[in-house]
Amino acid sequence: MIESRLFYFHNPKAGGTSVRHAIEALFSDGDIAPLVENTEPGFRRNGGDYSAFRGYRYYGGHYGSNIFDAVNDGHDCVTNLRKSDSRLLSLYNYFMVDVEIPDDPSLYEQFHAVRFAQTVDFHTFVASEDPLVEVYTRNHLVRQLSGSAWDVRSTGDLSQAAAMIDRMRWFYVCEEPALSWRWAQDAFGGLLPPIARDNVTSRAKGGRVAVTSMSDETRAVILAKNTLDTALYDYALRRLHEGRAAA
């Protein structure tokens, strides 16, 4: 257990479930906030009012700085990062293989992007200009760290997101697990449990698109939609390599 308060900006399909499980082991069940919102319909349903969620020592989810600002009571911040092309391929595979859409029509809107992914190929998925798909595929982390990734109106603010990276107690870079882990030992005083590989999209179910099959055209579409996320990733990676882990 740790005495400090923590807010985890969980970036989807970037090793984040593994990070979440490790972090949550540092807190008792009563310290952990219930689910606030993890989807665009949840964002609209809450209407910007998060007063009912205040008072917890740990928050973790696909939450934006809008929620952090509402509940922050001296909370340290952490997040996770991954290259956009790999992250979105993992997201697509997850939607295709591991997500079962409920029969309840009232939940269809919540699964809009999943339903779309399950009917199209990867290129069509990432190239879509549907706002309810682009909340997942366009500069997701920058919009998350500078507002809410679930706000379809948000374009994101790179300077605000970079400032949030600067204030992080720790962050995990999916492509740098060893260096991220060494920093974690300093950041959490050796208390953070090992980060396992959890929520990995199943290969056994079939239908999994391999990273080697990604065309140059598809990669270019992803990079064009994620110029801010790419810049933020590069910034965070430089911070990590320049000794941020030893700070």
Score class of each variant (00 low, 15 high):
Glu3Trp: 04
Arg5Glu: 10
Phe7His: 00
Phe9Glu: 09
His10Val: 12
His10Phe: 06
Asn11Lys: 02
Thr17Ser: 14
Thr17Pro: 04
Val19His: 02
His21Arg: 15
His21Trp: 08
Ala22Cys: 12
Glu24Cys: 01
Phe27Gly: 01
Gly30Val: 12
Pro34Gln: 07
Leu35Lys: 10
Glu37Trp: 03
Glu37Met: 13
Thr39Glu: 02
Thr39Gln: 06
Glu40Thr: 04
Gly42Cys: 06
Arg44Ala: 13
Arg44Asp: 10
Gly48Arg: 09
Asp49Lys: 00
Ser51Asn: 11
Ala52Leu: 02
Phe53Ser: 08
Arg57Phe: 04
Tyr59Ile: 03
Gly61Ala: 05
Asn66Gln: 08
Val71Ser: 00
Val71Asn: 03
Asn72Trp: 01
Asp73Tyr: 09
Gly74Met: 03
His75Glu: 05
Arg82Ser: 01
Ser84Val: 07
Ser84Ile: 08
Arg87Leu: 07
Leu88Gly: 11
Leu91Asn: 01
Asn93Asp: 01
Asn93Met: 08
Phe95Tyr: 10
Phe95Asp: 00
Met96Pro: 04
Met96Asp: 03
Val99Gly: 05
Glu100Met: 09
Asp104Trp: 12
Pro105Lys: 11
Pro105Leu: 02
Ser106Glu: 07
His112Ile: 07
Gln118Asn: 13
Thr119Cys: 11
Val120Ser: 04
Thr124Asn: 08
Val126Ile: 06
Ala127Lys: 07
Asp130Glu: 07
Pro131Met: 04
Val133Ser: 01
His140Glu: 08
Ser146Cys: 02
Ser148Leu: 02
Ala149His: 08
Asp151Lys: 03
Ser154Arg: 10
Gln160Pro: 04
Met164Ile: 01
Met164Gln: 11
Ile165Asp: 12
Arg167Phe: 07
Trp170Lys: 03
Trp170Ile: 09
Ala178Asn: 09
Leu179Thr: 14
Trp181Ala: 11
Trp181Val: 13
Ala184Leu: 15
Gln185Glu: 14
Gly190Asn: 08
Gly190Gln: 13
Leu191Glu: 15
Leu192Asp: 09
Leu192Gly: 09
Pro193Tyr: 12
Pro194Trp: 04
Ile195Thr: 10
Asn199Trp: 12
Val200Met: 04
Thr201Phe: 03
Thr201Tyr: 03
Gly206Glu: 06
Ala210Lys: 15
Ala210Ile: 14
Thr212Tyr: 05
Ser213Pro: 06
Ser213Asp: 15
Ala220Glu: 14
Ile222Trp: 06
Lys225Pro: 09
Asn226Met: 07
Thr227Val: 15
Leu228Ser: 10
Leu232Asn: 06
His241Met: 01
Glu242Lys: 01
Arg244His: 02
Ala245Val: 00
Ala245Lys: 02
Ala247Ile: 07
Ala247Gly: 08
